[in-house]
Amino acid sequence: MWGCVRLSRLISLGAALAFAGAVTTTEAGADPAPRRVVSINLCTDQLAMLLAAPGQLVSVSDLAADPHSSAMAEAARGYPVNQGRAEEVYLLAPDLVVAGAYTDPATIGMLRRVGLRVEQFDTAKSLNDTRARIAQMARVLGREDEGTALIAEFDARLEALEAEAGNHPRAALYHPNGYTLGGGTLADDILRAAGFHNLAAELGHRGGGTLPLEQLVMAAPDLLISAAPLPGASRSEAVLGHPALDALRKGRAGLRITSPDWICGTPHVLNAVERLTDARRALPEGGQ
């Protein structure tokens, strides 16, 4: 019985949404700015929070408020959260849902089948991609002027940071389970913008993968960048306390980072560039 009632509610809501959408389009012309936006992806959460008009964004994903994942965790606490389930999103009555390229295809398909507009955003793999994601979010929200201003601010700050880049010491990203990021990644572009060569890319790695501990130690990067330990003492993090890495940090330089500024193609990536620039300046002899 409950299933029938719930289904009837969804059907009724779908009809109401379809009618409301038709009226809005007729009154305002083609492609009106959405009035109720729901984000179900960590990266679209942050882009939408940066660009949405007051009251336009009505819900963000639960990851948006996680300080271990989100660069805007504090701001996200001002929004209702969702777990990205299709029925839950539908009942929020959005006229736009923003999602990632790898958001559960079943969820995306279900939302589209019931008539909701869904815009998906590719993962940013470079700083240029970051500009493109900002512009895309501004377009779908009907906030092009705000997007142009945010990109101009991003470019000005990036130009100031890149202008300081001198010689190019070698840096290595080394995370739990020996995970690293090589060429063709946002992390690689962040390193290069801060004036570093990415050791993993130099060794032929593209995308994410494992870097053997022995290879890392023998390559002796000027800066070893590791993730800050998370609560829970995961065994995957044990390698980060290996004596060989401790010796490498003491003999060269080490930097512990948190990941939120590195994950998504948003202006917050420049916080990572800035911190790395400071680390490069602190290296003896410029790291060479």
Rank of each mutant, 00 (worst) to 15 (best):
A156L: 12
L191G: 07
E88S: 11
E74P: 01
R85Y: 11
I190R: 04
I190T: 06
N82P: 05
G115H: 06
E146T: 10
G147S: 07
E119V: 06
I40S: 00
F154G: 01
N198I: 06
R275H: 12
S236A: 15
D188Y: 02
A132I: 00
G78P: 07
L213Q: 10
R131T: 07
P221E: 09
A106D: 14
G209T: 10
R9K: 15
A65M: 07
L240M: 12
L50Q: 11
S236C: 01
L276Q: 08
L7K: 13
P229R: 14
P105T: 00
L42C: 02
A233E: 15
T123K: 00
A18K: 14
P260D: 04
D188R: 03
I134S: 02
R281E: 10
Y90K: 03
P80M: 07
Q56H: 07
A156M: 03
K125P: 00
L216Q: 13
Y79S: 00
Q136E: 14
T266L: 04
Q288L: 15
L203I: 03
A282T: 02
D66V: 05
L211R: 02
L283D: 14
A163R: 14
L199T: 04
E119D: 13
E27D: 09
A165M: 06
P260Y: 08
T185P: 04
L186P: 01
I190M: 13
A132H: 04
A33E: 08
A106V: 10
Y102Q: 07
I108W: 00
S69A: 12
L111R: 01
P229Y: 13
V269R: 04
G55A: 07
Q46I: 08
R77K: 13
Q83R: 14
E162G: 06
L181D: 09
L17H: 09
T185K: 08
G182C: 09
P260M: 05
P267G: 05
H175M: 11
C43I: 02
I108A: 00
V239N: 03
A227N: 15
A138Y: 04
